[in-house]
Design a protein around this nucleic acid. Sequence first.
RNA 1: GCGCUCGUAGCUCAGCGGAUAGAGCAGUGGACUUCUAAUCCACCGGUCGCAGGUUCGAAUCCUGCCGGGCGCGCCA
Length: 574
Amino acid sequence: MASLEQLLHDRLAPAFEDVAGAPADPTLRRSQHADFQADGALALARRLGRNPRDIAAEVVSHARLDDLCRSVQISGPGFINLTFSDEALAPLVAEMASHARLGVSRAEDPHTVVIDYSAPNVAKEMHVGHLRSTVIGDAAVRVLDWLGHRVVKANHLGDWGTPFGMLIEHLLDMGESEGAHELSQGDLNGFYKAARIKFDADDSFKERARNRVVALQGGDPQTLRLWRLLVDESEKYFLAVYGRLGVRLTEDDFFGESFYNDMLHSVVEELGRIGLLTESDGAKVVFPRGFTNRDGDPLPVIVQKRDGGFGYGATDLAAIRYRTQELKADRLLYVVGLPQKQHFEMVYEVAREAGWLVAPARAQHVGFGSILGTDGKMLRSRSGDSIRLVELLDEAVSRAAVSVEVKNPELDGATRANVAQMVGIGAIKYADLSNDRLKDYVFDWKRMLNFDGNTAPYLQYARARILSIFRRGSISAPAGAPVILVTEPAERALAIELLAFPSLIEDIAESLEFHRLAGYLYTLASTFTKFYEHCPVLRSEGDVQKSRLTMSDLTARVLAQGLELLGIAAPERM
RNA sequence: GCGCUCGUAGCUCAGCGGAUAGAGCAGUGGACUUCUAAUCCACCGGUCGCAGGUUCGAAUCCUGCCGGGCGCGCCA
């Protein structure tokens, strides 16, 4: 569905071209002074050596706008202020309302997108660091999937490497069934720490752990069985956390580091054959173009260590090759913290030089900042440890339960618990997604659970409140061809906001700036409450009522869909 | 030292080349015989870290400085 901006662009671009003698961008944007403004005349003025206001006037005289706009004015130094006519807006809203996908079409040319996210470590607790990757990655999955792309969820589990020697020996010390029980119950911190303490304190344990690593890498069946046990129990635990979080990751999405083990030799071999490999202090490395260290020397990606073991660079390269060549992916997303940005940029460059990442296929680092406490420092528990993710979820739900009970005591116990779940989990996710993902953000219970402001509870409530209009009126959204009348200022504002949804979603699919979707939903919800405040719905009649009911229903659908794309559930009533 | 990143109202954040910089929270003052006031309306509040530069125009781009965070060859 064409956006308002697109409609104006289609009319103005040829007019600008007429005046400029060459293609010129109308540079359209939303405006405080009108619905939209076109600033292209200012940029043209210099090129043409003419007065920008004259250019704007000439552009306007060349463009057919009378069927779209009720007002076209030149203002200030040469802005073209454009105000849609009510008659132009109404049918567009009607079209959107009658469309099951809210005006958002499926991609004509679907991509295969591999999204690498979450990536917890086996036998280690999930903590706040995994929250962002999991929540952002899940939103990416939802948006791209909804747009009709083929999405492959890749949970790059940390399931291989030297710590497994110590973990397996600790498992044996505990007894297999005891150990498995502890892991599946989710006391991963305890398990890992106990192993770590023994490793640091006990030389004979350390020796056993080292031998165990050798056995693991050598493929010893008994060792592999124990390793598998650790992995399986951890996966069960992670799946339970994912279930609570309401993300789409499943048991089929685990593609841990070990998945790529068999490919590592051939990665090294192929890099050697192409001539990218260099010996450095006995290690095999690749120096990607454009990366230097503090002395200006080239910076390597280590693929094979001195001792013959593989570096994580090798695994990352194997994953790229697998994803582009076997999965035929043309877009690779890495939802990984910003500190690892340079590492991945280097790996992508190696992959490009090796011919494993060639256009149109591309890799995109979807980086994110840290979660800070209200003191402005990295969020940690009082003892200085990282906070267990499940504890955070528990606290969110119990805090939400208190609010819900206070706000709406009429709800029965089961509904209340259900609402608390959605509100609490939604609040945590929304707090994350509503901030620019590249920046650090402050984790503040009070703010995220506030029912006012840019929060999940506010949006959930706004939507529940709309549903209650229909419940209260014992009425459903008008069926058949929608009747839309746009007359009141609050109606116009709502119409324009609603119509912005489709193109926004397409932008988000590219930029993965989910905070813009969050900001949009917040603006939509507040625009709706103003509409609701100023335009009676149930107390109106005839076509006006039909129109308002349809716009209310459409708003509720957009809110629900938008929240769904962010991975946030919305209760029917709250 | 080099690299990346951030510095916008008391607090938390948008805005990232265009007209007097926007929200929310907090503060102050209004509006409930209600379509859920979990709301709405209004006021208060900012030399956009500092200094240069590019531009008709800079919070936005470039350079330098100051301050915070994070990386920098075998952990991923």
